[in-house]
Design a protein around this nucleic acid. Structure first.
Lengths: 113, 113
DNA sequence: CAAAGATACATCAGATTCTTATGTATTTGA
DNA sequence: TCAAATACATAAGAATCTGATGTATCTTTG
């Protein structure tokens, strides 16, 4: 089972930031594979979604990049900037809070008539 | 604190369906108020988001509607259709599953180097 | 060793879905 | 009486994802 794409919307940025917080530096393709692994294929980030997101994080100054060559093939590593670290904490705790709220919403059985 | 709007994306439809599953019938404005109450103002559904969603649910045959007059003012009640009930269960359990996965993702500290 | 698949980047048209504003109209409360 | 609340709706613009396409290198396998 793969989660419907609408669920990924809104969480992608947070997922990426969190992965970078836990791994110092990662490159795009690695991120897609790591998420796939960690979620047992239930979340598959497409490259069309990931690269624009990474570029946006860079434009916002939340990540810095360094290019590395593996043979002739280029790899672009992303790392959190100081403001990125702060932002990550905010986003992660907001999402955690949101999930608590959603859990509550989804469990309510009380028919308030 | 109000959750950043991106978080709501992708969950709105599920929230609406779940509320309808628990309350037999509700009208649009009521839904916005109920969600606001239940989430202590942390989720505020705008009308511009809600009405198109309700119309989409109707077009998909997941809800049926009945119009009622309160004085001269119209109220449009929404109820789950049989397929809507099935869909709700699917969506809710998918979201619950997704949240488990996200919780796992957000907690990982293991730096796989 | 050729071909397929994996690795690795990127862009873009189109689709979806939300925000914000606007519009109409009635009812309620200070 | 007049602002706020109730109650519907639409629509331009923004944001963000899908799916396709493009380029190029490296690895594996029959």
């Amino acid at each position: 089972m793969i989660y419907s794409s609408e669920l990924i919307k809104g969480t992608l940025k947070t997922i990426v930031l969190k992965l970078l917080a836990d791994n110092k530096k990662m490159y795009g393709y690695e991120i897609t594979q790591r998420v796939k692994e960690l979620t047992l294929d239930k979340i598959q980030i497409t490259e069309g979604a990931l690269y624009p997101t990474l570029h946006a994080l860079e434009d916002d100054g939340l990540v810095t990049t360094e290019t590395e060559y593996i043979g002739k093939r280029v790899r672009k590593y992303y790392s959190l900037s100081p403001s990125g670290k702060t932002k990550t904490k905010e986003k992660v705790s907001e999402l955690a809070d949101f999930m608590e709220t959603m859990k509550f919403l989804l469990d309510i059985k009380t028919k308030t008539v």
